[in-house]
């Protein structure tokens, strides 16, 4: 029982962490709370579905994955320039605009693919492995490895490359970064593209193992993603990694403790989030409350 909870919690946390990474990166750099994050994840999986399913386009699954990521990157850049950029700096407007985009994407998806569950094709078929008496699928181990390595890559990118350092500067002080000759607008778009690419990879890793995608996915995704990001502190990459494991474990423990949990298990991340916010209003690793606000 305990070993099962430990192993399943790690896997759950790993698959959730990548979803939160793009969100926290975008908030950290451009102070945009992207409520359409879950919708972008869903859209990327649907694009993959359209590209790879034999009776629609029937491409090779690996090619479909890459093409879906490219399409999503372009879509993210266009979406950012058209909708988010004009209202940058206004928290309420950004939230309303992005959540409206989420609703629009959901309606679009239902319009083209219908509201039913859709089966996905997996590019690789792998079996199960027994770890300490718990049967775990290989693909979830791959998910864990990929998300952890992407975390490491993003951390390296932020800390070691020139663009990453520019992003850090931008997150600290926009005007000072502009004075240092950083093209902030281009950097914002770049961050958005990075965030969207990360979320589409997260979407594939989240949906392909269960081979299922449905239009209601985006709301459940956004809830767990925001729970993670808020527990860890908005804009903190370290925080989101730790937050995802906290949420993953809380979820797994409740699901394993009592079979009657059912739909109430889905409020566990929210309850954890509320509890953390009560103790620390800016999350575990969030910055202290600034005096200007």
């Amino acid at each position: 029982m305990i070993t099962e909870i430990i192993i399943r919690g790690i896997i759950q946390g790993g698959s959730l962490s990548l979803i939160a990474l793009g969100l926290t990166l975008l908030y950290g750099v451009s102070r945009v709370v992207n409520m359409s994050h879950g919708a972008l994840l869903m859209l990327s999986v649907y694009i993959y579905y359209a590209l790879s399913t034999p009776h629609i386009l029937g491409l090779d699954p690996w090619l479909a994955l890459i093409m879906a990521i490219l399409v999503m990157g372009v879509f993210g850049a266009i979406m950012y320039r058209l909708t988010i950029h004009p209202v940058l700096g206004d928290d309420v407007a950004i939230m309303v605009v992005t959540i409206t985009i989420g609703v629009a994407i959901q309606s679009l998806v239902v319009m083209f693919f219908g509201g039913e569950n859709m089966g996905l094709i997996s590019p690789i078929e792998l079996g199960y492995i027994e770890i300490l008496g718990v049967s775990v699928s290989w693909i979830s181990i791959i998910t864990l490895i990929v998300s952890l390595s992407l975390f490491a890559l993003v951390a390296l990118f932020i800390n070691w490359t020139k663009i990453g350092k520019a992003m850090q500067a931008l997150s600290q002080d926009r005007e000072a970064a502009m004075l240092m000759g950083i093209n902030t607008n281009r950097l914002y778009v770049l961050t958005m593209i990075l965030s969207v690419v990360l979320v589409s990879i997260a979407g594939f890793l989240y949906c392909i193992p269960v081979k299922l995608v449905y239009p209601g996915l985006w709301l459940s995704i956004i809830i767990s993603a925001f729970a993670i990001v808020i527990v860890g502190g908005l804009g903190s990459i370290k925080g989101s990694l730790i937050g995802s494991f906290i949420i993953g474990y809380a979820d797994t423990i409740v699901r394993n403790l009592h079979p009657a949990a059912g739909s109430v298990a889905s409020i566990v991340p929210l309850s954890v989030m509320v509890a953390v916010l009560l103790i620390r209003p800016k999350g575990l690793f969030g910055k202290r409350v600034e005096m200007e606000d």
Binding site: Y27, D91, F226, G262, I267, D293
Partner: peptide
């Protein structure tokens, strides 16, 4: 508790509260 948090945090917190309620109401 909710008004201790500010800005985006408050928005996300309030977004979650009706979802919690709907889950409780739907619980078998």
């Amino acid at each position: 508790p909710a008004l201790r948090v500010k800005g985006p945090y408050l928005g996300l917190l309030t977004l979650c509260i009706p979802l919690i309620m709907s889950n409780i109401v739907n619980w078998y």
